[in-house]
Design a protein around this nucleic acid. Structure first.
Length: 927
RNA sequence: GCCGCGAUGGUGGAAUCGGUAGACACGAAGGACUUAAAAUCCUUUGGCCAGUGAUGGCUGUGUGGGUUCAAGUCCCACUCGCGGUACCA
C-alpha cells in the first residue's frame, strides 16, 4: 500500500473533529497544563509558511504533555481588531467585520489542515461582543481604581473618595467637575492632555511601541508629536513590579533584558537649583524660583557649566527674560513643527539661551539656562544640569555654544570628546577629590540628602500607555461625557456594542464614530475613540480558560484550576508591547482579586522568524539586448555577461532546487511568454531549434534571503505544501529547518528528505509481524525514546527528526517490522506527525486514539553496553582504540591500558608523565 | 552609541557537562532497476598529500592570543553579520 497522506490526513482530521478528541474540560483529576500560542491577526493574505512555526512547536509540546497524562489546555483565537481591515474598509466600503470574518474562516481552514490539536470550542475573537464585553469591563475597573503607592497595589477609587470625605475638608467644597478633575489624577485609566505620537496618514495616535524610528510600525508612515486629550493607562505605576516580576519568570535572558531596558530603571537624585535673573536686582519672587533636575551623576555637580530645559518644560515660561523672549519663542515654534522623524534624522545641536541664570548649590557659581530639544520633557523633570566634560550630549552642546568644560576626573582628556565612563579618581570637586567615581556618587547623594538640596530617587523610562485610537474598528470605550467630564457606564450596560456606520473615514478631524447615529447614552454623548490593538490581546489567555462564561471574564474555579499559562510561544516582536501590557493588565486584575497569579506567562519561548528565500532570473541588458534573454546564474560572472545582467525576482513556486521551470516561467506573466535562455551549459534555445527546451537543459536561478512578501514573489503557502507533501511532512520539515528560536529562511530544497523518511516509516508496516523484537531492535527503540523525550523537554525539536530517521533506517536495514516496536514508535511520533502516527497506531490493531496512549519510558538497561571503546590518546592525539569492559573502575582502565601492547610500543620504555582516564569516554597519556 | 544574539563543508544544520568535529538531510558525482522518465535503492562526498588498494598522514569550526593532557565549546582582544533600542541625563 502506498503512503497516501492526503487520504490519511483527511480521514483523521475529520475523525478527531467528530469525536471531539481535543475537547478540554475544566474538571479533571489530571494535572492541568496550559500551552498557548500568540493568537494571530487574521490578515487578508492568509497564513504563509512562516506563521505555523511556533504553532507546530506548541502543538508538539501539547501532544507530548497529553501523552504524559496531563489535561492540556491548548486554544487558538483571533486578534481581530486592527488597522488593515479598517484601511481596506475605507478604500472599498466593505465593512471590516465582513473581511475579518472571511479572513478568520480562511485561517481556521488553513490551521485545521495542519492538524493542530486546538480545542476550537474555546476559540475567542477580540471583535466579538461576548469577548470585548470583558475588555470594556477591565477598562471600567481601571477607570474606577487608583494605584496605592503605600500598599503598592491597585485599589478601588471609592476608597480614595471615602478617605477625602473623612479627612480632607477641601474635598466637599469642590464642585462635581472639580472633584472629577482631581480624581482623574489618580485613576489607572485616565484622561489627560498628553504629548502623543500622532500619525496623520493613519489619522490616529500610536503607543510608543507602535512607533519605530519616527515611523509607524504598521504602514511605515511619519509620526509627529502633538498634544491631545487622550486616554492613558497608568502602566508606569507598575514599573517596579514589572521589573522585579521578571526574576521569577522562565523566559530567555535576552527577552528579560529587553524588557528591563524598556522599563529603564535608573537610580539617581533630584536636586534643586535656585534661579537668578540676569543681573536684574533680585526680587523676593525671583529668589524663590527654583528648578528641580534629575541626574544619575550627582558626583559631577562641580562640573556643571550650564543647564538645559526641554522645550515643553513648564519652567521655560517662568525663567525666560523679556530680552530673550522673542528668540525663545521662535525656537519653541520650530521644535513644535518638527516631526519625530525629522528630529531623529537631524542630530545637529540646536538650542537657545533663556537669559536666566541658576545658582550651583555647591559652588554657588552662576550658570546660564538654555533650552534644547535634546532634553526630553517626558523623562525625569524635563530639566538637566549639564556636565559637558562627562556627558557626550552636553559636550556637543557646550562646544557649539562655546561654554566652559571642566574635567572632573584625573587623567580624562576632554579636548576632543567627553569622558562618559563611570570610573577614575575625582578632581576639581571639592570634598569629593580623590574619591573613585562610584564612591563619589554615594558620598554626594548623602550630602544632598543631608543638606536638603535634593533627594535620592528612581526614574523609569517606561511611560503610561496611550489608550485612545481615533479609529472605528476597535472596542468602544464604556464612557460617556457630562459637563465635559468622562463618566463610566454601569457594568450592566456592557457590552457597549460598536455601532454600524457607513463612512469609515473620520470627518473634520473627528474619529469615525462621530459618523454613527445616536452614539449616546441616556442622551449624553459617548466617547468617540476606540481602544488600541493591545486592549483585546492583554487578557485573552484568561478568557480561554472559561470562554463561554457570561458572568465573569473567568470564573474563580476555572482560574484556580488553570492558574496561568505554563508555556507561551510567540515572536520577539511583542517584547515591549503585548508582553508588557499583558503583564500589567494581569497584575491589575490580580490586585483586585480577579486572578490568582500575578504573572500571566510562566515560561516563554520565542520562535525565530521564517524569512523568505527569493529566486532570481538574470535578464541580459548588454549590447543588442532584446529584453527577453535570460542568463543562467552560473554564467553571470563570465566576462561576456558580467555587469550586463539585471536580476529579476521570479516566483519561488515555479523554481525547484534553484532550477527554473521553463514552461511555467513562460506562462507566468505575459512579458515572459517569449523568453529565451542561456542555459547552465552555455547553450541557448537557438542551439536546439527543434527540441523546444530539452529536459537536460537547466536554467539555474540565483537566490537571496529577504522578508517573505508578495512583492518579492517568495511567499510559500502552507496549503500548497500540505497538498504536495502532507501536513506531517510540513510539520516535520519546519522543525527540521533549524533551532526553534533562530531566524531562518524557508527553503523547500530539503523537504524531499523528510517526506522520504515518512515513506520509509510507512513501508516498515508492510511486513509487520508479531515476533518478539530482538535486543538490537529494542535498543534502537529505547535510544529513540530517550532522545525524543529529552528533545521535547528541552524544545530541541530540530534534533529529533534525525533521531527518528536513524531509528527507521536501522529498523529498515534490519528488516524489522515487529508490531511491539512499531506501535511504540507511532506514539513517539504522534506529537510531531500526528496523522501518520494515528494511522499506524490503528494499523497496529488499536481502536483508541493515539492521543490517549501513554508516553513510553526508556528502559536504560537496554542501552547499557558491556564494553566501552576507549580512544587512547598520547598528548591529546588519538593513537588507537581499546575495547574494555564497561564495569572496570577508573584505576582498572588505567592498568589495562598501560598493560596493553600498543601502549607499550608508544611509550617505548619511557614512563608516562600522567595518565588521565575519563570513565566511559577517553584515556589520555602524557609522555 | 548601548544591549542582546550569532559566525562550523557547496547548502540547512549536529556535536545536550571541556573528551574521536561535520550526525541527519539537501545538493553533487557514480552505479543498480527501466525502452525512457519518474519513483526506489546502493556507493562516494570538508580540504590537502601519499598509496593499485584496504589505509595512512597533515590540516581544519570568522581572526589573533591564552588556559588545559584535551577547546567549536572556557578566558582576553578583534572582525563581520543579524535583531532590539536610543539625545532616557
Amino acid at each position: 500500500m502506498e503512503y497516501n497522506f492526503q487520504e490519511i490526513e483527511k480521514k483523521w482530521q475529520a475523525a478527531w473533529d467528530k469525536d471531539g478528541v481535543y475537547k478540554v474540560s475544566n474538571k479533571s483529576d489530571k494535572k492541568p497544563y496550559y500551552v498557548l500560542d500568540m493568537f494571530p491577526y487574521p490578515s487578508g493574505a492568509g497564513l504563509h509558511v512562516g506563521h505555523p512555526l511556533g504553532y507546530i512547536a506548541s502543538d508538539i509540546y501539547s501532544r507530548y504533555k497529553r501523552l504524559q497524562g496531563f489535561n492540556v489546555l491548548h486554544p487558538m483565537g483571533f486578534d481581530s481588531y486592527g488597522l488593515p481591515a479598517e484601511q481596506y474598509a475605507i478604500q472599498t466600503g466593505q465593512h471590516p467585520e465582513v473581511t475579518t470574518n472571511k479572513n478568520i474562516a480562511r485561517y481556521i481552514d488553513q490551521l485545521k489542515k495542519i492538524g493542530f490539536c486546538y480545542d476550537w470550542d474555546r476559540q475567542v475573537k477580540t471583535c466579538d461582543p461576548s469577548y470585548y464585553k470583558w475588555t470594556q469591563w477591565a477598562f471600567l475597573k481601571m477607570f474606577n481604581s487608583y494605584y496605592d503607592t503605600t500598599l503598592q497595589k491597585a485599589q478601588p477609587i471609592a476608597k480614595l473618595v471615602a478617605e477625602w470625605e473623612a479627612n480632607d475638608p477641601t474635598w466637599k467644597t469642590l464642585s462635581e467637575k472639580e472633584q472629577q478633575q482631581r480624581l482623574m489624577n489618580y485613576r489607572i485609566a485616565y484622561l489627560s492632555d498628553t504629548k502623543v505620537n500622532w500619525c496623520p496618514e493613519l489619522g490616529t495616535v500610536l503607543a510608543n511601541d507602535e512607533v519605530s524610528e519616527g515611523l509607524s510600525v504598521r504602514g511605515g508612515y511619519p509620526v509627529e508629536q502633538r498634544v491631545m486629550r487622550q486616554w492613558s493607562l497608568r502602566v508606569s505605576a507598575y514599573a517596579e513590579r514589572l521589573l522585579n516580576g521578571l526574576d521569577k519568570l522562565d523566559w530567555t535572558e535576552s527577552l528579560k533584558e529587553t524588557q528591563r531596558n524598556w522599563i529603564g530603571r535608573s537610580e539617581g537624585a533630584e536636586m534643586v537649583f535656585k534661579v537668578q535673573r540676569d543681573k536684574v536686582p533680585s526680587t523676593k519672587e525671583n529668589d524663590e524660583l527654583s528648578m528641580t533636575i534629575f541626574t544619575t551623576r550627582a558626583d559631577t555637580v562641580f562640573g556643571v557649566t550650564f543647564m538645559v530645559l526641554a522645550p515643553e518644560s513648564e519652567y521655560v515660561s517662568r525663567v525666560v527674560t523679556d530680552e530673550h523672549r522673542a528668540e525663545v519663542e521662535a525656537y519653541l515654534d520650530r521644535c513644535k513643527n518638527r516631526t519625530e522623524r525629522e528630529r531623529i534624522a537631524d542630530r545637529r545641536v540646536t538650542g537657545v539661551f533663556t537669559g536666566a541664570y541658576a545658582i550651583n548649590p555647591l559652588t554657588q557659581g552662576e550658570i546660564p539656562i538654555y533650552i534644547s530639544d535634546y532634553v526630553l520633557a517626558g523623562y525625569g523633570t524635563g530639566a538637566i544640569m549639564a556636565v559637558p566634560a562627562h556627558d557626550s550630549r552636553d559636550y556637543a552642546f557646550a562646544k557649539h555654544f562655546n561654554l566652559p568644560i571642566i574635567p572632573l576626573i584625573e587623567g580624562a582628556d576632554v579636548s576632543e570628546e567627553s569622558f562618559d565612563a563611570k570610573e577614575g579618581k575625582m578632581m576639581n570637586s571639592g570634598f569629593l577629590n580623590g574619591l573613585e567615581v562610584k564612591d563619589a556618587i554615594r558620598t554626594m547623594k548623602e550630602h544632598i540628602t543631608n543638606t536638603g538640596i535634593g533627594h535620592v530617587t528612581v526614574n523609569y523610562r517606561l511611560r503610561d500607555a496611550i489608550f485612545s485610537r481615533q479609529r472605528y474598528w476597535g472596542e468602544p470605550f464604556p464612557i460617556y461625557y457630562k459637563d465635559d467630564m468622562p463618566y463610566a457606564l454601569p457594568e450592566e450596560a456592557l457590552p457597549l456594542e460598536l455601532p454600524e456606520i457607513k463612512e469609515f473615514k473620520g470627518v473634520n478631524g473627528q474619529p469615525p464614530l462621530a459618523n454613527a447615529k445616536d452614539w449616546t447614552y441616556n442622551g449624553y454623548p459617548l466617547e468617540l475613540c476606540t481602544m488600541p490593538g493591545f486592549a483585546g490581546s492583554s487578557a485573552y489567555y484568561l478568557r480561554y480558560m472559561d470562554n463561554h462564561n457570561d458572568e465573569a471574564l473567568v470564573s474563580k474555579e476555572a482560574n484556580e484550576y488553570w492558574r496561568q499559562v505554563n508555556l507561551y510561544i510567540g515572536g520577539t516582536e511583542h517584547a515591549t508591547g503585548h508582553l508588557i501590557y499583558s503583564r500589567f493588565w494581569n497584575k491589575f486584575l490580580y490586585d483586585l482579586g480577579y486572578v490568582c497569579e500575578d504573572e500571566p506567562f510562566k515560561k516563554l519561548i520565542n520562535q525565530g522568524m521564517i524569512q523568505g528565500r527569493s529566486n532570481f532570473v538574470y535578464r541580459y541588458i548588454g549590447e543588442g539586448a532584446k529584453g527577453n534573454l535570460y542568463i543562467s546564474y552560473n554564467l553571470i560572472d563570465n566576462p561576456e555577461y558580467k555587469d550586463k545582467v539585471q536580476p529579476i525576482h521570479v516566483d519561488v513556486n515555479i523554481v525547484k532546487n534553484d532550477i527554473l521551470d521553463i514552461k511555467a516561467f513562460r506562462n507566468w506573466m505575459p512579458e515572459y511568454k517569449n523568453a529565451e535562455f542561456v542555459y547552465s551549459d552555455g547553450t541557448t534555445d537557438e542551439d536546439n531549434p527543434y527540441l523546444g527546451t530539452p529536459a537536460e537543459k537547466q536554467y539555474i536561478c540565483g537566490w537571496a534571503i529577504e522578508k517573505m512578501s508578495k512583492s518579492m514573489f517568495n511567499v510559500v503557502n502552507p496549503d500548497d505544501v500540505v497538498a504536495q507533501y502532507g501536513a506531517d511532512t510540513l510539520r516535520l520539515y519546519e522543525m527540521f529547518l533549524g533551532p526553534l528560536e533562530m531566524s531562518k529562511p524557508w527553503d523547500t530544497n530539503g523537504i524531499d528528505g523528510v517526506h522520504r523518511f515518512l515513506k520509509r516509516l510507512w513501508n516498515l508496516y508492510e511486513n509487520i509481524t508479531d515476533d518478539e523484537p530482538t535486543r538490537d531492535e529494542l535498543k534502537t527503540l529505547h535510544t529513540l525514546i530517550k532522545k525524543i523525550t529529552w528533545d521535547i523537554e528541552n524544545f530541541s525539536f530540530n534534533t529529533s527528526i534525525p533521531a527518528y530517521m536513524i531509528a527507521v533506517n536501522e529498523l529498515t536495514a534490519a528488516k524489522c517490522s515487529k508490531r511491539a516496536v512499531l506501535e511504540v514508535i507511532s506514539v513517539l511520533l504522534a506529537p510531531f506527525a500526528p496523522h501518520i502516527a494515528e494511522e499506524t497506531w490503528h494499523r497496529c490493531g488499536h481502536d483508541t486514539t493515539v492521543c490517549d496512549a501513554e508516553w513510553p519510558k526508556c528502559d536504560e538497561s537496554l542501552l547499557v553496553e558491556s564494553t566501552v571503546n576507549y580512544p587512547v590518546q598520547f598528548n591529546g592525539k588519538v593513537k588507537f582504540t581499546l575495547s574494555l569492559d564497561k564495569s572496570l573502575s577508573k584505576e582498572d582502565v588505567e592498568k589495562a591500558v598501560l598493560a596493553d601492547e600498543q601502549t607499550q610500543k608508544q611509550l617505548a620504555g619511557n614512563a608516562p608523565k600522567r595518565v588521565i582516564v575519563v570513565p566511559g569516554k577517553i584515556v589520555n597519556i602524557v609522555i
